[in-house]
């Protein structure tokens, strides 16, 4: 467990920087960790941060690693966790579109006036 926490600290310290995205060895290293732990434990330690308001805080660099190294996971994890993330994100996206369209309509209204 201590090792996991240390690993977590290591990841949060090093991966908060985007500079390391291109590092292939690190990609492989995180991939092996994902393979050893399984996607569920991995994602509970290294969060995707999808709930962040600022989209730049979302750990998008995790997606290619998850895609490449996930094997022998649980389908129920996808239906429960990932699918609910999809729904939350789609809901958020619709909200953004609604707000933008409302602003555009107001803007058009003032132009007409």
């Amino acid at each position: 467990m201590l090792l996991l926490v240390t690993f977590h600290n290591f990841l949060t310290v090093y991966f908060s920087d985007i500079i390391f995205i291109g590092d292939l060895q690190l990609h492989e290293c995180v991939g092996s960790a994902l393979g050893a732990m399984g996607p569920e434990t991995f994602l509970s330690i290294v969060r995707l941060n999808l709930e962040a308001n600022d989209l730049s805080e979302v750990k998008v660099w995790l997606f290619p690693i998850l895609k490449q190294y996930t094997v022998g996971g649980r389908l129920s994890f996808f239906t429960e966790a990932i699918f609910s993330m999809v729904e939350t994100m789609s809901h958020k996206a619709q909200k953004v579109i609604f707000i933008i369209s409302r602003y555009l309509m107001m803007y058009a209204f003032f132009i007409v006036l």
Binding site: V60, K67, Y69, T70, G73, R74, M85, M89, S90, A93
Partner: peptide, 18 residues
């Protein structure tokens, strides 16, 4: 982001346990 999440589905279908 929604698409990226969906793109994980084939990986989860890679020898799943359940």
């Amino acid at each position: 982001l929604v698409y990226s999440l969906w793109a994980l589905l084939p990986s989860f279908c890679n020898y799943p346990v359940d």
